[in-house]
Amino acid sequence: MSQFEKKLAEMGVTLPEAPAPAANYVPYVQAGDMLFVSGQIAKEGDTLLTGKLGDDLDVADGAKAARACAIALLAQVKAACGGDLDRLVRVVKLTGFVNSTADFTQQPAVINGASDFIGEALGDAGKHARAAVSAPSLPFGVAVEIDGVFQIK
């Protein structure tokens, strides 16, 4: 078990199998030591975490959805690294999309659900640049989608 997976286990998290793409794209692309992971939608098990922030979801609901996206991102990184998450050097950047109403302005607080989780799980390797933006809708009505850029060895 990798050092990162040991920390995840301490946090009560086991990475799932990397989700398959939902359309005509690949889940990740490696260019040199950079790994670009396609957007991961908010899902726990087989249940999509749907809804709109500022309407039927609050910031805590959104942060939970963002955390689920972060877990899926790490599952994709593990798959890209042949099952060895210790090949992860650092998280470079996350871009979070929040399904929200036009007057909702707390997108950063929602995406903190992913950033806080990544930071706790990965320590210094989890420190990353980030964007958190609003979207009028997301695939399948999910609350959050996040993509990421990672450095691997």
Results as ranks from 00 to 15, higher is better:
Gln107Ile: 07
Ala60Ser: 05
Val110Thr: 04
Lys6Met: 12
Gly83Cys: 13
Glu5Pro: 04
Pro136Met: 11
Gly83Arg: 14
Ala9His: 14
Gly96Leu: 08
Leu94Asp: 05
Ser134Glu: 04
Leu35Trp: 01
Ser2Glu: 12
Ala42Gly: 08
Leu57Phe: 02
Met11Ile: 08
Glu44Thr: 04
Asn99Trp: 05
Met11Arg: 01
Ala125Lys: 11
Lys43Pro: 01
Tyr25His: 13
Ala23Tyr: 05
Phe36Arg: 00
Ala22Met: 06
Gln76Tyr: 03
Ala66Leu: 06
Gly62Gln: 02
Pro27Ala: 09
Ala70Pro: 03
Ser134His: 09
Val59Leu: 05
Leu53Gln: 01
Lys7Asp: 10
Phe36Gln: 00
Ala70Lys: 06
Val110Phe: 06
Ser115Thr: 12
Tyr28Thr: 01
Thr50Ala: 13
Ala125Leu: 13
Ser134Ala: 15
Ala125Gly: 12
Ala75Asp: 04
Pro16Gly: 11
Gln40Asn: 07
Ala42Ser: 15
Ser38Gln: 07
Asp56Trp: 03
Leu94Gln: 09
Cys69Pro: 05
Asp46Trp: 03
Pro21Asn: 10
Ala121Gly: 06
Ala23Pro: 00
Ala18Thr: 04
Ala75Met: 07
Ala132Leu: 11
His128Glu: 12
Met11Lys: 03
Ser134Cys: 10
Asp116Tyr: 09
Gly119Asp: 07
Pro136Lys: 11
Val92Tyr: 13
Ser115Arg: 08
Val77Leu: 06
Lys43His: 04
Pro136Thr: 14
Leu53Trp: 00
Asp61Met: 02
Val29Gly: 00
His128Tyr: 14
Glu17Ala: 14
Lys7Phe: 10
Val91Phe: 12
Phe97Pro: 00
Arg87Phe: 12
Gly96Lys: 03
Gln30Asp: 00
Gly51Pro: 01
Ala42Leu: 02
Tyr25Met: 09
Gly123Thr: 07
Lys64Asn: 14
Pro19Ala: 15
